[in-house]
Simulated scan of single mutants.
Amino acid sequence: MKYLLVLAVVWVAIWLWRKNRREEMQERAARTPRPASPPAVGAPQAMVRCAHCGLHLPASDAVRGTDGTPYCSAAHRQVAERA
């Protein structure tokens, strides 16, 4: 009989401990700021290939040659135009 009483006391102690721990976790989760929404991702961009080295880059970042050929940098454009 006394073992049953000890078991009941241990069970109540564990139950109270878990209940308090659950409440602390909920309070901690409520205090931490969450991002309102995921960061917006822009629309896909057209990719072009550098005429000199073959690097693929967004068309908006490309440097255009005199004939409209895309290059990855001004140095590659100058090298290609000299040749």
Results as ranks from 00 to 15, higher is better:
1 M>T: 12
1 M>S: 14
1 M>R: 12
2 K>P: 04
3 Y>T: 06
4 L>F: 02
5 L>E: 03
5 L>Q: 02
7 L>A: 15
8 A>H: 04
9 V>D: 00
9 V>Q: 01
12 V>M: 00
13 A>F: 13
14 I>K: 07
14 I>A: 11
15 W>K: 00
16 L>N: 10
17 W>N: 03
17 W>E: 06
18 R>P: 02
18 R>M: 06
20 N>H: 11
20 N>P: 05
20 N>V: 15
20 N>Y: 08
21 R>I: 07
21 R>P: 06
22 R>W: 13
23 E>K: 10
23 E>V: 14
24 E>F: 12
25 M>Q: 12
26 Q>F: 12
26 Q>E: 14
26 Q>N: 10
30 A>N: 14
31 R>E: 12
32 T>C: 00
32 T>F: 04
34 R>F: 10
34 R>H: 08
34 R>T: 02
35 P>G: 05
36 A>Y: 01
36 A>D: 06
37 S>G: 07
39 P>M: 11
40 A>R: 08
41 V>H: 05
42 G>A: 13
42 G>N: 13
43 A>S: 13
44 P>N: 11
48 V>D: 00
48 V>T: 07
48 V>M: 01
49 R>Y: 00
49 R>P: 07
51 A>C: 07
51 A>P: 01
51 A>H: 09
52 H>R: 14
53 C>E: 09
54 G>V: 10
54 G>H: 02
54 G>I: 10
56 H>V: 12
56 H>C: 12
57 L>A: 04
57 L>F: 07
57 L>P: 07
58 P>W: 14
59 A>F: 10
61 D>G: 13
62 A>M: 02
64 R>K: 15
65 G>E: 01
65 G>S: 07
65 G>D: 01
66 T>P: 14
66 T>L: 15
68 G>K: 09
68 G>R: 08
72 C>M: 03
74 A>W: 08
75 A>T: 15
75 A>W: 10
76 H>T: 03
76 H>E: 06
76 H>N: 15
76 H>F: 04
77 R>M: 05
78 Q>W: 12
78 Q>Y: 14
78 Q>N: 14
79 V>M: 15
80 A>C: 09
81 E>K: 11
83 A>Q: 14
